[in-house]
Design a protein around this nucleic acid. Structure first.
Lengths: 68, 68
DNA sequence: TTCAAAAGTAAAGCAAACTTTACAAAAAAT
DNA sequence: ATTTTTTGTAAAGTTTGCTTTACTTTTGAA
């Protein structure tokens, strides 16, 4: 699973902590997602989509291995 | 969390079992999601998005209570 | 160079997604 | 009306997202 979080966060000039607060998750959760440690829930993905004004599909993309 | 699974599945003429197979999950998982028992993971949401040719945001929508 | 803010990382614990097995109810076909 | 397909539902177990606490490393400003 590939994601653009780091780039979008930079584009919006937000720290991991600030984004975490906006998305109502812990800072570690944002960090872990950015570093590929795990994949966000759909609720969180939709929240990030709203925060950045981008569709979920633009923010997250399945890699070959995860495709159905 | 609101979702259009049932409608899209009907539109594509798929049984729960057939969709489950396409999405590589169990039939019960599809059933549970349709009946609001739980929210799909982002991986599954993206797979369903691909199967139906619709953006995740069109398939799933946060309700007030879940918004950040 | 020093100090503070930001990012990285780790472990224990909880909650929820998902699986498997299994059976009942409803719908559709014959 | 009977049989078959589809849907609904339930329980036990596994996996994984997420939290909290806490400590280290990196970045950057003063």
């Amino acid at each position: 699973m590939r994601n653009n979080l780091k780039v979008e966060r930079a584009r919006h000039n937000l720290t991991q902590a600030a984004l975490a607060e906006k998305a109502k998750v812990s800072r570690q959760t944002i960090n872990a997602i950015e570093s590929g440690k795990y994949i966000p829930s759909t609720v969180l993905a939709l929240r990030l989509s709203a925060i950045f004004g981008l569709p979920v599909n633009a923010l997250f993309e399945l890699e070959e291995e995860d495709r159905a």
